[in-house]
Simulated assay, not measured.
Amino acid sequence: MRKRTAYAWGVAIVAFIVLMIVTPAIPQNQEYHDFADQREFFGIPNTLNVVSNFPFLVIGIIGLVLCFYKNYFKFCLQGELWGWTCFYIGVAAVGIGSSYYHLDPNDATLVWDRLPMTIAFTSIMAIFIIERIDERKGTVSIIPLLLAGVISILYWRFFDDLRPYAVIQFVPCIVIPLMAILLPPMYTHSTYWLWAAGFYLLAKVEEAMDKVIYEWTHHIVSGHTLKHLCAAMVPVFLTLMLAKRTVETERISLLQTWKVSWTKVKENGSTVERSTYTYTSVEVDESH
């Protein structure tokens, strides 16, 4: 098992090195800081982009409190508590760091927007390893993954190259939904992971359509403001999942569950179809 783990880490490191060699550097586009909605209310620059981060702070603090409130989330493993604690710290810090960035958007302030997000992303990866693969490996991976996130931000800041940060941000977006579908869960309510992933995807679309949405809404709200609100739904759904879930007695992956449900639907459809075309013989009275 240890050899397999070392082999997997080796493959991942080699793949990352090859990626860094064969792909060009990705500098920070300065147009990124030019958001559609730059209106100022109550003396706050870029008001809506600033205040729309407030939900992150709220849900981060709530989640952090519930992690330690009389075992409210009922963690089975110690590593889970550490992982979710780091996640909620990252979420709460996003509310502060992103607001700070939007007060004066530039590369220097953007560091404090992206750094908390990497903490949240890497914590989630560790949590998934703990729950779906191996508790010890997942717990041990918390610190290395957090360090990888921090290093990716420092690398971008010093070398103006976003490639490591892009890996840290987008790999979880692909891996986590796949793991949620393919690997048997330890707890119930696993579909909340997919709801969270869906809202994050929607947030990225809104971010890309910042100016377009601002025009569509006749300058009422921009895509970036909506992006903040949709992204904040990710920790909301995960918090609801933690509050509702129980230990899964039969560990079956979502994919297998869907296959069983689909098979039942097909069987029911076949039964209905057979009953629809089944005829009974009726005796005919030929005496008349």
Results as ranks from 00 to 15, higher is better:
24 P>V: 12
82 W>I: 12
284 V>D: 01
146 L>A: 05
251 R>Y: 11
158 F>D: 13
144 P>F: 08
65 V>T: 07
255 L>M: 13
64 L>N: 01
171 V>F: 12
102 H>Y: 09
206 E>G: 08
69 Y>H: 12
77 L>W: 06
254 L>I: 11
73 F>C: 07
110 L>G: 01
171 V>L: 15
111 V>F: 14
227 K>H: 10
203 A>G: 15
118 T>F: 03
217 T>I: 03
91 V>K: 00
214 Y>S: 04
234 V>W: 01
263 T>D: 10
99 S>T: 15
232 A>E: 09
66 L>R: 07
86 C>I: 10
137 K>D: 00
9 W>M: 15
154 L>V: 15
247 V>P: 05
88 Y>E: 04
91 V>L: 01
107 D>W: 07
6 A>C: 08
131 E>Y: 04
172 P>K: 00
268 N>E: 15
43 G>W: 14
210 D>S: 05
239 T>Q: 05
231 A>C: 12
205 V>C: 12
171 V>C: 13
196 A>Q: 03
59 I>F: 04
193 W>E: 10
186 M>D: 08
247 V>E: 15
74 K>H: 12
177 P>V: 00
208 A>C: 00
148 A>R: 01
126 A>G: 06
14 V>P: 05
133 I>K: 07
209 M>S: 13
128 F>A: 05
90 G>M: 04
112 W>S: 04
219 H>F: 02
213 I>N: 10
37 D>F: 11
253 S>E: 13
217 T>C: 07
237 F>L: 14
278 T>Y: 15
269 G>R: 02
77 L>C: 00
3 K>P: 00
260 V>H: 15
157 R>M: 09
146 L>K: 00
202 L>G: 15
27 P>H: 05
114 R>A: 09
1 M>Q: 12
244 K>E: 12
80 E>N: 10
110 L>C: 11
16 F>C: 07
51 V>I: 15
61 I>S: 06
192 Y>V: 11
159 F>H: 08
207 E>S: 07
108 A>V: 13
12 A>F: 01
21 I>P: 03
39 R>N: 11
74 K>M: 10
87 F>V: 08
18 V>S: 06
43 G>M: 13
176 I>H: 07
205 V>H: 03
26 I>Q: 13
149 G>A: 06
46 N>T: 01
90 G>N: 11
52 S>I: 05
